[in-house]
Simulated scan of single mutants.
Amino acid sequence: MPGQDAGTPRVFLYRHGQTEWSQNGRYTGVTELDLTPTGRKQVSASGKMIVGSGKLIDPANIARVYISPRKRAMQTFDIAFDDSDKQALQGKDKVTQKEERLAEWGYGLYEGLVTKEIRALRKERGLDAERPWDIWRDGCEEGESAQDVTDRLDSLIREIRASHKDNMHGENPSDIVLVAHGHLLRAFTKRWLGYPMEFPLLLMLEPGAVGVLSYQHHNIDEPALLVGYGFPVDEEE
């Protein structure tokens, strides 16, 4: 890993590729959808560029891959990692499939709707008279609240930090890969940084894209968002 942060553990946030509903802006929680052909191409393109030996996500540096239980996330992992890397990781028991803490936000009554439909539905039910619905503050009727999501993500973050605390200078492979969903991974980022869900931190993560979290100064108590990252270089060139 290049630069002064060489060896500092990282968490890679790998969002699944496009589905029919993500293309249309529909909230997709428990509904099982396949990646679209475009979604498969998105993941293949990012995987070829950044996943593999000597690349940004190097299987040799990975401590664990956590995958959401939804089919679209599992398809993303299958496409992003080549067969030999998947076999090596699974052979060393480094892949956690169907990790419920990474399931997308439970949207309840709002499953399959777009934002304007949700706000219209809530208005009909006498809600949000003073301000429009915001999932980060208001959660979802018959689904998950912001606190529900906070609790399960905080549990995962504690687990990840426990694995990182004795590896802040690259003592052992310690990178983590999370293969999951748009809302969920943005929620994870807020909690990684210690912000409540309603904190107005606007984040974007495109289908098939990868974000990176780490720590400042090799310090477990200074979790950080890597706004920009230098790619590995060949020191022999």
Rank of each mutant, 00 (worst) to 15 (best):
A187D: 05
D148A: 14
P223G: 02
P9W: 08
S22V: 01
Y14P: 00
P2L: 06
S163C: 10
A120P: 08
W21V: 00
H181E: 07
K190F: 00
G182E: 14
K190C: 01
T19C: 03
G3N: 11
Q18D: 00
G54H: 09
D93G: 05
F199M: 04
F199K: 13
M168F: 05
Q90L: 10
V233M: 13
A209M: 12
V233F: 06
K165I: 13
Q147M: 12
Q18S: 00
R152N: 13
D175S: 05
A73E: 07
T19R: 08
E104W: 05
E141M: 15
I176A: 02
R26S: 02
L109A: 11
R125Q: 15
G25N: 04
R64M: 13
L201S: 07
G126K: 12
L153K: 02
L127T: 00
P69S: 05
T96E: 12
S163Q: 15
Y215W: 12
I50H: 11
G25W: 04
Q90R: 15
S214D: 13
K41Y: 09
F77C: 01
I160T: 01
G106Y: 07
I176K: 05
Q4V: 10
F12K: 03
S84I: 14
D134E: 15
A224Y: 05
D82S: 01
A209D: 15
M1I: 00
A60D: 12
D85H: 15
G91R: 10
L213S: 06
E100D: 10
N61A: 00
S163Y: 11
V30E: 08
Q18H: 05
P69H: 06
A180R: 09
I135H: 15
T36D: 08
G112W: 13
R161C: 03
W136N: 15
